[in-house]
Design a protein around this nucleic acid. Structure first.
Lengths: 150, 150
DNA sequence: CGCTGTTAGTTGCATATACAACAACAATAA
DNA sequence: TTATTGTTGTTGTATATGCAACTAACAGCG
């Protein structure tokens, strides 16, 4: 039995938490400053834009964006209310709807991307070396894979 | 002028976001399963426990925990309502109060720690090598230092 | 002293999230 | 067919968060 918890791991965890808070709020602030909606909207629009023809069921969006259905249901409401997205009755499954991105949605997505991109540029790309970026990618992949177990 | 944004950095960012979501929800789930309050409570209790005699002003807590005053004000309300914390009028500054941790607060903190610790153990320490943990620490420090500029 | 600007903290309001209960349908088995 | 169970999605409710307006108190200056 090894030491209960290495101080190292705890420190890393705390820093991870803090940086996530800071980075997220920075990105959201940049989007807001540009008069654009929050990041979660972009996530959904991006996924929908990848399937412009077939669209996506809500639960499919939920899987890709890591949102549970409660929130997603209302998030789609908001998107639909602004005309960025539209729901269509699903032929093969009477319960659900298929969500499609609209022209305005595509437009919004393309407006958000430059802001988002420059945020990533400024907050990540400019600060880290290529090696660190690779390392970060690897570490995050490891952490993500770990969670599925249990 | 280099490429606008390396695909690498974008990937790293996405993974960072995803892992944040997953890790946070896992930790919160573990705490909830143990019938314990959310992580933000622990953060505040921890900081207060470091100054058991002098206590802390609210804005000091806010600085350490990265919470803005609006949320903090109500978070302290909730903590106070459960008797984990108590506000005292501040002698030297009539506006504000000094927050102290109570016996029950210390108790709660010590109940939360094992759960929190085992969460970090399981979600971080067990998955990463010591080298990766060091690397993660360094990268997060870099990202955090970066944000203060501008 | 009064005046101004700043800071600490609270509150109202709109919005966002989590959880549970529910309705509608699908899929399977008897 | 009917019954049963699981899945998709919505809604009610409680709670949490962000923002702006507000109060109260500090600090500096005439």
């Amino acid at each position: 039995m090894e030491k209960v918890l290495s101080k190292q791991a705890e420190t890393a965890w705390i820093l991870l938490l803090r940086s996530q808070q800071v980075l997220m709020s920075q990105v959201e602030a940049m989007l807001k400053e540009a008069g654009l909606p929050p990041l979660s909207w972009y996530d959904v629009l991006l996924e929908l834009d990848r399937e412009p023809d077939s669209g996506l069921r809500q639960f499919e969006i939920g899987e890709r964006v890591l949102l549970n259905k409660h929130n997603l249901s209302r998030l789609i409401d908001r998107l639909e209310k602004r005309g960025l997205v539209k729901r269509q009755a699903c032929d093969t499954d009477g319960r659900g709807s298929i969500v499609h991105i609209t022209k305005q949605g595509i437009q919004m997505k393309s407006e958000m991307w430059p802001v988002y991109e420059s945020a990533i540029q400024k907050l990540i790309a400019e600060l880290l070396t290529p090696t660190q970026i690779r390392s970060l990618t690897e570490i995050m992949n490891t952490l993500l894979k770990g969670h599925t177990k249990t």
